[in-house]
């Protein structure tokens, strides 16, 4: 059984069909990429998985459970974490605090216990902190631990957002354009991290990315999307060589 299975998903915004009868399945342990031109509907797929958008038709199954029965705030609990295309961090908090919010789904203590900072809250806090420190070590965020997000460069924010998603201890990680706006070196780091996330942490990754270099080096399978519909699916090499993809990217007549 696939970890994530989408069948015939359709979503329209007024007259625009953002996603059209799209089916895909992501296997446990793989890195799967969705590629496609701007406006193809890639982020919309993510937003349906996160339950921010309600599909008009189709089924979404995660680990055998019906995703559509969940509210947006219950998706994290299943073990799905994500980043956003336009970085959505908590700007007036430190890097550490941002990563700790990632732990929110593991909160066990009640309001009253927290008001009195009961011993259990203290124990939990230390456990959360240990989990977060592992992420900080993994992503080399030590120099930024106590820095406010508002003052950080773009590249670092991108990494913090990845860290926040990792801190929640997900089974499936959704990365919306993880390398967009990053320098060559930063993209290189991102490539290693995604590799390690899969290999060391055993987390399944579904990502949207334009950088075909990055996609072909870290992804097992790629799906090419255009106007909300699937053009091609397969290994990165297969998809890049697919006539429909070449046509969509270079325009008719280029083949």
């Amino acid at each position: 059984m696939s970890l994530l299975e989408i069948k015939d998903a359709t979503l329209k915004f007024g007259g625009v069909v953002a996603v059209n009868k799209l089916s895909l399945s992501v296997e446990e342990g793989e890195v799967y990429a969705i590629v496609g031109p701007n406006g193809a509907g890639k982020s919309t797929v993510f937003n349906m998985i996160s339950r921010f958008y309600q599909p008009h038709a189709g089924t979404f199954t995660f680990d055998g459970q019906n995703l559509l029965e969940r509210a947006a705030d219950q998706v994290a609990d299943l073990g799905i974490a994500r980043t956003f295309q336009n970085i959505e961090l908590f700007d007036h908090a430190t890097v550490l605090q941002n990563l700790l919010v990632g732990r929110h789904r593991h909160r066990k203590t009640s309001l009253v216990e927290e008001l009195f900072f009961a011993p259990r809250v203290r124990r939990e806090e230390i456990a959360h902190r240990e989990a977060v420190e592992e992420v900080i070590d993994f992503l080399d965020l030590q120099p930024y631990r106590d820095k406010m997000i508002a003052g950080l460069p773009y590249g670092v924010r991108k990494v913090v957002e990845l860290g926040r998603a990792l801190a929640s201890g997900p089974r499936l990680l959704l990365l919306d354009e993880p390398a967009s706006g990053l320098s060559v070196e930063e993209t290189q780091d991102m490539r290693w991290w995604i590799d390690d996330i899969r290999k060391q942490m055993g987390i399944t990754v579904l990502m949207v990315e334009h950088d075909m270099g990055l996609v072909s080096s870290v992804c097992d399978r790629v799906l090419a999307l255009a106007d909300g519909a699937k053009l091609a699916e397969g290994t990165p090499a297969e998809v890049q060589a697919h006539p429909a993809v070449i046509e969509a990217y270079l325009g008719a007549g280029a083949v």
């Binding site: 705030d73 994290a76 609990d77 956003f84 959505e88 908590f90 007036h92 919010v101 929110h104 926040r164």
Partner: peptide, 13 residues
């Protein structure tokens, strides 16, 4: 306060 969208994605109701 800072982002309702990502708070939701982190599991905050």
């Amino acid at each position: 306060r800072d982002s309702e969208v990502s708070a939701t994605a982190m599991g905050v109701h």
